[in-house]
Design a binder for these strands. Structure first.
Lengths: 325, 325
DNA sequence: CCGCTCTCTGCAACCGGTTTCATCGAAGGT
DNA sequence: ACCTTCGATGAAACCGGTTGCAGAGAGCGG
C-alpha cells in the first residue's frame, strides 16, 4: 500500500503539493498536476480514508437504519441508497432496527460517532426521540415527517386517496380499511387520506385494526371483515396477501365478491391469483434521494429537505366493479 | 466531542495511561484504572475510530457483498452478519453486486481499502477471480467453495438429497429437477447430490433448464414439464413458486398430481396454497458465522475456515404420495 | 526599474489515538 | 543495606493524510 509520501517522492514534490494535486487540482500548476497524477497512477495510490477522516472530520460514510430486511419493500431502498453513496464515493453502513425504538435510537447513536450522516427509514421512535437523534449528526428521515427535520416522504397518502377514487369509480360505496400497526405514522396518514376522500364522496368507511402488518394478521382480518363490505384496502402488502389468502380459503371470490387493494408496493402482488391492485411507489428513488440530500446537508449545500415523492395507482386483477352495479 | 486528551486531563494522568486504561486494563494499576474509567464516563468519551484505525490499521468494519436484496433469502443473512458485527463492536458495510461478476470484483476491491475483511455471499465470479480478490484483505465466501479460501457453506446439497429421499419414500420414481442459473455453484452441487441419490435408488431423474431463478421462469417451466413426472424439485423458491402458479393455472393439482419441493428456504413458501415443501436453512447463522470467523482470521486467531452448516427437510403440503400408489 | 500582486510550492503543525522506550519507585532476594 | 526485578507511568514518536502560513518567483502597472 503506497502512501501520499511515496507519491510525493515519486513525483519529486512535497506531500502538500501531492495532496493538493489530488484534492484541489485548481491550486496546482498544470505540469505539476499531471506529474503527480502520473506518479499516483504508477503506484496505484489509494488515499487512506482513516487518515483523511482524521483531519477533515469526514468519514465518507453514511449510516442507514432500516426496520427490517425481511420485508422486500426495503430492498430497493437500500439499493438506491447504496448506488447514490457509491456514485459520490461514499460508503453505506447498514443496520437493522427490527422495529424497536430503543434499538433504533441506540443504532443511530452508535452510527453517529462514525459516519457523516444517518438515513433513518420508517422510524418507530417518538417525535421527541427523533429530534434528539438529529442533533449529533445530520439525520434524514424516510417516510416520516417530524417538524423541520430533513425528510423524504413517499406519498402513499395521496396514493391511497387515489386508490379510493379508483374504487369509487368502480361503484364501491362500502369500503373497509385494514389498518396497520398502532402508532404507525404512515398508517395514520393513509387512513386520514382515505377518510377524507370517502367522506367527500358520501360513501361509507369502516376500519379494522390496528393490526400487525403481517400475512397472518391479514388472514385473521379476512375472517372478521364486516358484512356488506364491497372493497378492502389494506395498510400494506402483507396484510393484503393474508386477506387474499383468507378470503379465497373462505370461498369469497376476489374481485367478484370483494375488491382488494394494498396501499403500498411489492412485486409479489403481481404474482398472486388474482394479482393485487396496489400502488407504484418509487422506493429506490427514495433511497437514492435520501442519501444525496443528506450529503448535501453535510456539505452545507442545503439546509433542510422536505421531499414528497408521488405514487400512482397500479390497477391489477383484484379490484373490479362493485357487486350489483 | 471529548478526546482522549480530555479524559487524561480530567483524570490527571497522561494520554498514554488513559489509552491503556481503556484498551489494556491489565497494564494499569487498579485505582488509576477506575479513575480513568470514571473520567471517561463523566465526559461521555467515545474514541475516534478514524484515529484508532490510523495507528492500529484496523478499521473495525467488515464489508458485506450480497448479490441482491430483492430476494428475501438474503435478509436473515444480512441480519445475522450485522448482529455478529455489532456484538464485537464492528460495523457492517453493505454493497449489492446485482449478480454481476465485474461489479462484485469492483466492490470487493473498493471495500478492501476500507475494511478489515470482506464477506462475499454467493459470489458469481470465477474461481480465479475470487482467489485474486482474497489477497488484499481477509475474504470469506458464503455458499461457495474455492480451494482453501475461507468459506461458510449452507449444505443445501445434502438437504436436496434428503428432499429426494423424502420423495422416494412417498413412492416417487420419476423426478424432475428444475435447475437454476447456468454456472451456479450451488445449482451444480444440488443437482449432483440429487443425481447420486436417485441413481442409488434406481429411480429416474430428468433435468429442466438451466433457467433464471425467477418466478416467471418457474411459470415457463410448468408448461414444459416432461410428461409422467410425479415430482418436481426446483433449484430455488422463486422457481418453485412459479411452478406452483403455472401448474395450478393449468389445472394440475399439487400434490395430488404432482409433488413439488424447493431446494432452499423462504418463508413465503409457507403461505401459498398449498404450502411448499422445502428446506430449513440456517441463513442467519451463516451470516453471523461468516462475520465471526472473518474477524478471527483478521485477528490471527484462525487461519482458515471451512464450515458446512446442515439443512433439514421441511415437509409441507406440496409433497404427497405418488399417484397410483 | 521598482514594488506590488498573484500563483505556486514547501515546511510544519495538526487531527486523535496507540505504542515504544525510558524512568521511577517499591518489593524481593542475599 | 545493596542490587535486581518488576510493575506502573509518562514523554514522545508515529500512523497518513490536510491545511495555514510563509516564501519564491513571475507578471504587471506605474
Amino acid at each position: 500500500m503506497s502512501t501520499l509520501a511515496d507519491v510525493a517522492r515519486e513525483a519529486g514534490v512535497s506531500k502538500a503539493t501531492a495532496s493538493r494535486a489530488l484534492m484541489r487540482p485548481e491550486l496546482v500548476a498544470r505540469p505539476t498536476l499531471e506529474n503527480v497524477r502520473a506518479a499516483a497512477a504508477r503506484l496505484g495510490f489509494q488515499p487512506n480514508r482513516a487518515a483523511r477522516a482524521l483531519t477533515t472530520g469526514r468519514t465518507g460514510m453514511v449510516g442507514l437504519v432500516v426496520p427490517t430486511l425481511a420485508n422486500p419493500f426495503f430492498a430497493p431502498l437500500v439499493l438506491g441508497a447504496q448506488r447514490a453513496a457509491e456514485e459520490t464515493d461514499n460508503h453505506l453502513l447498514l443496520t437493522v432496527s427490527e422495529y424497536s425504538a430503543e434499538r433504533e435510537a441506540a443504532l443511530v447513536a452508535r452510527l453517529s460517532e462514525q459516519v457523516d450522516g444517518v438515513v433513518l427509514v420508517a422510524p418507530v421512535g417518538s417525535d421527541a426521540a427523533l429530534r434528539e437523534l438529529a442533533d449529533r449528526r445530520p439525520l434524514i428521515l424516510v417516510d416520516r415527517r417530524v417538524g423541520r427535520l430533513p425528510a423524504v416522504v413517499l406519498d402513499t397518502a395521496s396514493g391511497t386517496a387515489a386508490l379510493v377514487r379508483h374504487l369509487l369509480e368502480l361503484g364501491h360505496r362500502d369500503i373497509v380499511y385494514v389498518s396497520g400497526p398502532p402508532g404507525s405514522w404512515a398508517d395514520g396518514r393513509r387512513r386520514a387520506a382515505m377518510a377524507e376522500q370517502i367522506e367527500e364522496a358520501g360513501a361509507r368507511l369502516r376500519v379494522l385494526g390496528p393490526l400487525p402488518p403481517t400475512f397472518d394478521a391479514g388472514i385473521g382480518a379476512a375472517a372478521e371483515l364486516p358484512a356488506g363490505a364491497g372493497a378492502v384496502v389494506a395498510y400494506n402488502s402483507y396484510l393484503a396477501l393474508g386477506l387474499l389468502h383468507g378470503l379465497t380459503a373462505a370461498g369469497v371470490r376476489v374481485p367478484e365478491d370483494v375488491s382488494l387493494a394494498a396501499a403500498d408496493d411489492l412485486t409479489a402482488l403481481g404474482a398472486t391469483v388474482p394479482s393485487v391492485t396496489a400502488l407504484d411507489v418509487p422506493v429506490e428513488e427514495a433511497g437514492a434521494l435520501a442519501v444525496t440530500r443528506l450529503l448535501e446537508v453535510r456539505d452545507g449545500t442545503r439546509r433542510t429537505v422536505r421531499t414528497l415523492l408521488p405514487t400512482r395507482v397500479h390497477p391489477r386483477e383484484s379490484t373490479g366493479r362493485a357487486p350489483g352495479r
